[in-house]
Amino acid sequence: MTTPIPAGLTALADGEHISELDDVAGLMRLYRAKIFRFVAFSVRDFDAAETITQDCFLKAHNTRHQFRGDCSVSTWLMRIAFNLVRDHTKTLKFRFWTNIRTTAVNVDELGHYLPSNASSPEAQYLARERVELIQSTLDKLSEKQRSVFLMKFVEDLDLREIAEIMGMPLQTVKTHLYRAVATIRDKFGATL
């Protein structure tokens, strides 16, 4: 009879388990981009996003013994990142001056990373316009709506997983998502 191996643990030949969390370099190689883009689009500050991403992996490494394996490492990291973003936003509310340093991603800059499979220049232009519209509307969403939207439509996470990360009931997550989509649809309706 084989015992189930919790997520985040790898089975070795001799039956011992080595945690994926011990290998920080490997962990960052696998999940850095994911955590970074979530943080960057949440806090909209490039330098803060880099710092928070580093903090996330540092915290994960320092508290790796607390990881129970009841969720995937990815979900666990996202939960840490979400909490760090929330703390960062709370601190920001009490700061009078803030550095407007790009809101993490320049809209024009994001346009350079569009997939180049569009058939015509017109289609490319339309795609770019829509990406810019979503990007600018994201800034107008509330913190929770933005987080839910990013987790669902950028990270493609399951709603239950999002609820687990954010520590919210499933219905609340759905409500935030409905509102986020409604705001973006309104913008689409007004523009297109």
Binding site: K34, A40, I100, T102, L110, Y113, P115, R130, V131, V154
Partner: peptide, 28 residues
């Protein structure tokens, strides 16, 4: 549109280091 946005964000985050704009402090 959501799919295009997703791909653009993924491409952006996997790039080396996205370019930053000018930094200047302004009141919120």
């Amino acid at each position: 549109s959501l799919g295009t946005f997703r791909i653009a964000v993924h491409n952006w985050s996997e790039a080396e280091r996205p370019v930053q704009r000018q930094v200047f402090p302004v009141p919120r």
